[in-house]
């Protein structure tokens, strides 16, 4: 890998919880993202997986400075993004874009599609009306929509079509980097596949880099080159897709993969599953040491005392775990259950 396109290091984003009353004192902090580091090469897709509360969406927005990062560094082509003034930042926005999860909320209901997709062109280019219309028509057909429908309003489109409109808007200025924030999780499966195929095709054609945020491992596996797994604001494992899906060393990653039901009654009922206990703890008071330890069947005193660093336990994979799972080790149900009794 040459010079990375996007370089994130030690990214932290906390949200203050304000008390009631006139002064609105800050009473607590939610640590949505605590010390995230990764990089993305040009033309590459990094999948960012996590459950709710893992801070994956916050991370995506913080990288684009839609949420101002609390600390840490974000470099785009070696340039520090967090230090840019608002004018320079606006310039940079042409090159980094975002597609949102909810195709219903992410399009302004009062604007026709032509205006929605054309907005980045109005803001950043000096195109006249004619040129803009031509460009918008091109974009719409690129994402598989009929250009004649450009004067319709968002509510006249289906969820999948709206998501395509959102994608057309994001790629209007030929960005180098696009954050895809759960772009298909609000869509029906039959429609989801079409949008995933589209995203892949656009990447092949335009060489964009994606940060693909999702909670669905199977979707992430389908689109990513590399994958990072987040838990409570931290990356617990990151690496090549193949390595991660085949030889993951982190108990959480293993559990997450095991939890995805397989659409095949025979396999689903015979496969070995790991069932985690409990829910994700609150990010207001995350557990000490390794944040996953409260649900982990391999946890020891060491895990409570010391937060594990990302270390290469298996080739091509960085894992933050004191007790990593060996590449050939098979975790069985019995393993996970015995630990619970000890708890």
């Amino acid at each position: 890998m040459s010079e990375p396109l996007v370089e994130v290091s030690d990214l932290v984003k906390t949200f203050p919880i304000k008390g009631d009353g006139f002064l609105q004192r800050v009473v607590d902090q939610v640590q949505a993202v605590s010390g995230l580091s990764f990089d993305i090469a040009a033309g590459e897709t990094l999948g960012l997986v996590g459950e709710s509360g893992s801070g994956k969406s916050t991370a995506g927005r913080a990288i684009l400075r839609l949420h101002e990062p609390t600390s840490g560094s974000i470099k785009f082509e070696g340039r520090e993004v967090t230090e840019l003034d608002s004018k320079a930042m606006q310039e940079l926005r042409q090159r980094m874009q975002i597609v949102f999860q909810d195709p219903y909320a992410s399009l302004n209901p009062k604007l026709p599609v032509n205006d929605i997709v054309g907005e980045p062109l109005v803001i950043h280019t000096k195109m006249n009306r004619k040129e803009r219309e031509r460009k918008v028509a091109q974009l719409l057909s690129d994402v598989g929509l009929q250009p004649e429908h450009g004067n319709r309003y968002p509510h006249e489109f289906s969820g999948g079509q709206r998501q395509r409109i959102g994608i057309a808007r994001a790629i209007a200025l030929d960005p180098d980097f696009v954050v895809l924030d759960e772009p298909v999780s609000a869509l029906d499966v039959s429609v989801q596949a079409g949008v995933l195929n589209l995203l892949r095709r656009l990447q092949d054609e335009r060489g964009m880099a994606y940060l693909f945020i999702a909670h669905d491992l199977s979707v992430v596996r389908h689109v990513s080159h590399r994958v990072a797994v987040m838990y409570l604001g931290k990356i617990v494992e990151i690496g090549e897709r193949k390595a991660l899906f085949q030889t993951s060393a982190h108990p959480y990653t293993r559990a997450l993969m095991s939890a995805v039901p397989v659409a095949d009654p025979h396999r689903e009922r015979t496969r070995e599953t790991i069932t985690l206990e409990g829910d994700v703890p609150s990010p207001i008071n995350p557990p000490s040491g390794c944040r996953f330890r409260t649900r982990c069947w391999r946890a020891t005193d060491l895990c409570a005392a010391e937060a594990p660093e990302l270390v290469e336990h298996t080739p091509g994979l960085l894992t933050a775990c004191h007790h990593p799972i060996g590449p050939d080790e098979v975790v069985t149900r019995a393993d996970t259950n015995s630990a619970v009794l000890a708890d």
């Binding site: 596949a193 195929n197 491992l217 979707v219 993969m257 397989v262 659409a263 009654p265």
Partner: peptide, 29 residues
């Protein structure tokens, strides 16, 4: 799941990305 007799069901099953296998293209309906 294994003796599908309706194209719609077949389409649904085909459009799910599988965690255990690598497919280049999904088949949407």
């Amino acid at each position: 799941f294994h003796a599908t007799r309706m194209p719609y069901t077949a389409g649904l099953l085909g459009s799910i990305p599988d965690l255990d296998s690598e497919v280049a293209e999904l088949t949407p309906i």
